[in-house]
Simulated scan of single mutants.
Amino acid sequence: MAKNKGSSRKGLMLVVLLLVLALGAGGANLYVLWSQSGKTQASELEDMPAAEPVPEPPHYVALEPFTVNLQSSQYDDRLLYVVITLGVADEQSKQQIEDYRPHLRSRLLMLLGEQEDEALLASGGRQALAEKVLALFDEPFAERLTAPQVKEVLFTEFVIQ
């Protein structure tokens, strides 16, 4: 019986030793797999192109309608009714236009009143007027101010009668 006890102990020790080795090998295998999958995900993220910055939303300032008499060689009275929306570069320019709206309206009324009906009706006449309106913003509204950055002039309504 003594031999049976010794051999059963040796067999039990062998089984425990094999079980510990198997668990250790399995644990090492899981560790290697997890560490590699983390590296793979990190390298995949590095390989992805950098996300493009989200462009800032456009800033627009809608002006009240303008009605002015046009210069005309053929007709006695010609009227221009126009609604202008300005595309500005940033919130600061938008705020400056809002703050100095009376100055801007005065400048625009003088510019629009100097226009000739034939020039506005000709091909490219409205584009030329838009460029003249943009040129109004080369000068600041008041001393010690920078001119607002106006990027585009949009005519949302344009009627010559």
Rank of each mutant, 00 (worst) to 15 (best):
L30C: 11
L86S: 01
L63Y: 03
R9L: 05
P102T: 10
F158A: 12
L19T: 15
E64I: 09
T146R: 08
G113R: 06
E44M: 13
D90C: 09
A135W: 13
Y60F: 15
A130K: 02
L70Y: 01
L23M: 13
A142Y: 05
Q96C: 06
E114G: 09
Q71K: 11
S72Q: 05
L120C: 05
D76T: 15
G11N: 13
A50G: 15
L104H: 02
S123L: 13
A147Q: 08
E143F: 14
E114F: 06
F158S: 11
Q36Y: 06
P140V: 06
D99F: 04
D138H: 12
G38D: 05
P65A: 11
L21N: 10
G6K: 00
S73R: 08
L21M: 13
E91P: 03
V20D: 07
A22P: 05
F155M: 06
G26K: 09
W34Y: 14
Q161R: 12
P148E: 04
N29C: 14
Y60K: 10
A119P: 03
A62S: 13
N29I: 08
E98S: 10
I97C: 03
Q96P: 02
L104P: 00
E139W: 09
L63S: 02
A2M: 12
V82Q: 00
P140Q: 07
D47C: 07
S123N: 14
S7T: 00
L63R: 00
I160R: 02
M13V: 12
Q96I: 06
S72H: 03
V83A: 06
L21K: 05
E46C: 11
L17V: 15
L129I: 03
